[in-house]
Design a protein around this nucleic acid. Structure first.
Lengths: 323, 323
DNA sequence: CTGTTAGCGCATTCAA
DNA sequence: TTGAATGCGCTAACAG
């Protein structure tokens, strides 16, 4: 069933059918209704592939994520979806698996698909990373927005959590309660870890308190290992600021195993939320981020680019202290 | 940059370029290499939209999920993705929001996109639900596989967790330890809840033990409410079989609040995994399912359908007792 | 308000 | 092994 069939059944030209489908130029009320009826009766659906080719554009946007099996990105995807759905856009989802090679490849896929725009969590984590494959998108005139990671350079539009300021606020908050505050940082080659560490350092420096920094790798095990060593060495701080929720989980595990009461014997502050803590009766302070809005804001920026806005846009999502 | 440009630069016809792109019919080695070089030099990417139109087919499959912000489905999506990636297929992801109306609409979207196949978590939950909108896919000759939900009728290919047998195994296991076993069931209008309840009932019946059934709605709050009332009424069973992990979380919350030690004062068995329990030092038995494989198996079935297999296929994913 | 026609970028017969 | 021509289903001038 194609446009031609509908046209014949309706006794009009395909141009007219096309017009009623697209609501483009004016069609006589009566004609329109008749065509509409036939379309409905025949359950006809226009072939979007053909439409796209004729219009030289696409109605899909590409989303590239480094890990599809991660609730954090699930929220972002959700935010993106709800926004683009309203624009009648579709989402093609790609996984970069956190690998630069894969990232380059999926970008080529997106190019072939002639997607309308791209939202991507860049794999690159440090200042030595290469971003030049993003130029390919520029070559094809496809607008894009980087999310979640703070990226070096001054040409990209981005949306990410306020890393430095968030850590600063968190540390300031902890300083109102105690003065012996240690931090478990993420791997220093990542920009997020660097920024979060900076925030902690600045706040501690302002109050001239001694900094105690431990380095983890953002995963549960490293949090567990570090806290276990602290406990063995009997040098637990009054408060511990942990750079992400995974490591916080490790910390919680270690503390519970050693019967150390959280918030009684030690204050734990996680950079981001540990979702289940409350259910298990564990009291953790954290920064609350509207993660979904990362996706939403990215779509907003993309839309403005699609409308011709050439300016660079940076949006930082603010965190709110939850206690 | 289109195929014509490449052809001109190479001094050959577009047919030849098309042939090397698709590796279709034989092209002289020398010619092929030359064309390939130009393609590379110019960073040319064929326009998939045009390819699809010419070939009257698409390289994307549609995936419909009722909740993008749910780790369970994240795992399934991940399983689907890894499989189709190898087939050089793309995934367009749609959200039905658990609404039948939305489901109908996204199916129309998929029709317009002329997707190659569909994998869908049907919204329909009970025997009174309507499945006739799936016929639309049949009309367009698009193969599809239903996942996660057990659906009434005898025409659909499906992949889901073994609900009844899983619950049966779980209850049998609990019966080896105690005899006073209560169950918190899901809402009885859903097939999953019905099946799980059946499994429990059969196992209890075989041993002529008294059944104690409470009805929740699969959400945290209902688990919490039910356990709280049990505690107040001082009628805690020796063991409690909870029909899903969300309600189990509610149960855990209630028990912890009331200082009742899990696995000491009461045995808790969750139908599916409560991921964080171990970290928080809580001992929960559960059925372990390879959730990701739901997606993988669905792709397998879809592939066979794409190859012309008309038979109906049902795959049940087995659960393994984890203690 | 409506129809005719020329593409959109590519695959694929059919000849050569 | 190659090229010319046709068409995939639809949109968008252009003309009427």
């Amino acid at each position: 069933m194609k446009i031609k069939d509908i046209a014949q059944l309706a006794g009009v030209s395909i141009a007219t059918v096309s017009r009623v489908i697209n609501n483009s130029s004016s069609v006589r009320e009566k004609t329109r209704n008749m065509v509409l009826e036939i379309i409905k009766a025949k359950n006809y659906r226009p072939n979007i592939t053909a439409q796209n080719l004729a219009k030289k554009e696409t109605n899909t946007i590409g989303v590239v994520i480094p890990d599809l099996d991660n609730p954090f990105f699930g929220k972002i995807i959700n935010g993106i979806y709800e926004k683009i759905e309203k624009e009648n856009l579709n989402m093609i989802l790609l996984n970069s698996y956190g690998s630069l090679e894969k990232e380059k490849r999926v970008i080529e896929t997106l190019l072939e698909q002639r997607v309308k725009g791209v939202i991507i969590v860049p794999v690159a984590k440090d200042k030595f990373s290469s971003y030049k494959h993003f130029n390919r998108l520029d070559e094809f005139g496809i607008p894009y927005v980087l999310i979640d990671r703070e990226v070096e350079g001054d040409k990209f539009s981005e949306v990410y959590l306020e890393n430095r300021n968030g850590a600063y606020k968190a540390t300031k908050y902890l300083l109102t309660k105690v003065s012996d505050i240690a931090m478990i940082s993420g791997p220093i080659r990542t920009t997020t870890a660097t920024k979060r560490l900076e925030g902690y350092s600045i706040a501690m420096g302002e109050k001239k308190k001694e900094k105690k920094i431990y380095y983890g790798d953002y995963r549960i095990e490293s949090g567990y290992k570090i806290i276990t060593q602290m406990i063995k060495g009997k040098n637990l701080p009054e408060a511990l600021f942990v750079a992400n929720n995974m490591m916080t989980l490790g910390v919680i595990k270690g503390l519970i195993e050693n019967n150390i009461k959280i918030s009684e014997n030690i204050l734990i502050f996680s950079f981001d939320e540990v979702e289940m803590a409350e259910i298990f009766g564990v009291k953790i302070d954290y920064l609350e981020f509207d993660v979904k809005s990362v996706g939403e804001k990215a779509v907003d920026i993309l839309k403005s680019k699609l409308n011709g806005d050439k300016s660079r846009k940076i949006i930082k999502i603010a965190g709110k202290i939850k206690k």
